[in-house]
Design a protein around this nucleic acid. Structure first.
Lengths: 69, 69
DNA sequence: GTCCGATGTAAGGCGTGCTTGACATCATGT
DNA sequence: ACATGATGTCAAGCACGCCTTACATCGGAC
C-alpha cells in the first residue's frame, strides 16, 4: 500500500497562485498525474522533484513538506 | 545510467561532527550502505531521508543538497 | 604480523516514484 | 444538449531507493 509519510501544502500553494495541476506539472517537468498523486497523498515526491517544487513556489522545502515526529 | 542528479555535502558535514557512516545511518534510521551510496553519488536519498538528515545536521535541506540548473 | 574499525563494492530482492494512455466525473459556458 | 477544462482513477511498465548478506581493502594499535 504505499502511503506517504510526508505531508505537504502543495494544493494550498498551487491554488493560491491560480495554477492548474497540469501547469504546475509543466513548471517542474513532471506529469499531471504525479502532481495529483502527491497532492492526494498517494506517494511522496523524490528529493529532486521536491527541490523543483520549492523553487517554483519560492519557498524552502521545510515550509512545503512536513515529516511527522 | 542512473546516477544522482543532486549533489550533497553529507561527507563534509558528517566528518566535521566526527561521526562514522554507521553512526549516521543509525541516527536517521537507514543502513550504512545507503549512507555510502548517497555520499558517493550512486543515488539520491528519498525526501523522507533527506529531511531526517537535515534534522540530525541541524541545517536546512537547501544547505545540504544541491540541484543543478 | 595480526586484529579491528571504517570504508567500499556486489548481488538479489522489494516497494515506490513516475511515465504514458485511456477513461470517468463535475462545473461552466454556449 | 453539447463542448471544454479541471480533477481524478486505473493499469502496465520501468527505473530508482533501500534492504540484507557477504566479502575486500586500508590504516592504525597492539
Amino acid at each position: 500500500m504505499a502511503a506517504q509519510t510526508v505531508k505537504n501544502a502543495l494544493r494550498q500553494l498551487r491554488v493560491l497562485r491560480g495554477w492548474t495541476q497540469q501547469e504546475l506539472g509543466a513548471k517542474v517537468g513532471t506529469s499531471r498525474q504525479a502532481i495529483i498523486a502527491i497532492e492526494n497523498g498517494r506517494f511522496d515526491p523524490s528529493l529532486t522533484l521536491a527541490i523543483r517544487l520549492s523553487r517554483v513556489f519560492e519557498k524552502p522545502i521545510e515550509e512545503i513538506f512536513f515529516l511527522d515526529h
